[in-house]
């Protein structure tokens, strides 16, 4: 596990790239959503599979979670999880500029997740001269889903009981706040063990250039 740990310089550099990306993403989002979007200082840490599994179990009590895979050049890839508290979704349609009856709450959550994830990661990628592609976002589980409650919850239980086939991952957590709509959500980027090495070599190259 030691060889995948970021040293202090690497950690600072990653933090700096993320900060810049957050600034630009927040600017783009504000223009698109026509309201201020605050991104809180990110936390970067290595997490174990057990730790993440526990976090998901805990959070799954009350939230909707959307997953979206991302992949770029030089072996940079991972999964973005967007986590919502149920009360967050009240005014989503309004925020997104849709009529409330035009789309279901699930679709609103998925749509917003995709916008937040891809906007941030596109800017992040351009910071490191990369380009991202994405899988379609998927709702992993939602406690809002009032249809098929039974099967939905059993599926979510199933997901929670999955054991992951990795030991450690790099976790970047960014909190979004849209105060005008009293809306919050968390974006958690998870970069699997095998891709951490790839990202550190990109960071090393950037550090050398300075």
């Amino acid at each position: 596990m030691n060889n995948v740990n970021l040293n202090e310089d690497q950690q600072d550099c990653l933090q700096e790239i993320i900060n810049v990306a957050m600034g630009q993403a927040s600017d783009q989002l504000a223009r698109y959503l026509d309201t201020f979007v605050y991104l809180k200082v990110p936390s970067i840490e290595q997490v174990s599979a057990q730790h993440l599994s526990d976090t998901l179990k805990y959070e799954a009590q009350s939230v909707a979670v959307v997953s979206q895979g991302f992949f770029g050049y030089e072996g940079i890839r991972g999964e973005a999880l967007l986590m919502y508290q149920p009360k967050d979704s009240d005014r989503l349609a309004d925020l997104l500029g849709y009529e409330p009856d035009e789309l279901s709450v699930e679709e609103q959550i998925i749509d917003l997740s995709s916008i937040l994830t891809t906007t941030f990661l596109n800017v992040f990628a351009s910071q490191i001269d990369n380009q991202m592609s994405y899988s379609a976002p998927r709702l992993l589980f939602s406690s809002n889903a009032d249809n098929n409650t039974s099967s939905q919850s059993s599926i979510s239980e199933h997901i929670q009981h999955n054991s992951f086939n990795w030991d450690t991952a790099l976790k970047v957590k960014i909190s979004y706040q849209v105060t005008d709509y009293s809306f919050n959500c968390d974006m958690i980027l998870l970069i699997p063990e095998s891709a951490i090495i790839n990202i550190t070599s990109v960071i090393d190259r950037i550090l050398e250039e300075y």
Partner: peptide, 19 residues
């Protein structure tokens, strides 16, 4: 509105059969 997010944010967007 969907296409405006693609144009303005210069990013991919998706729509699934489930929704």
């Amino acid at each position: 509105r969907k296409l405006s997010s693609v144009i303005q944010l210069n990013t991919q967007s998706f729509c699934s059969w489930e929704q």
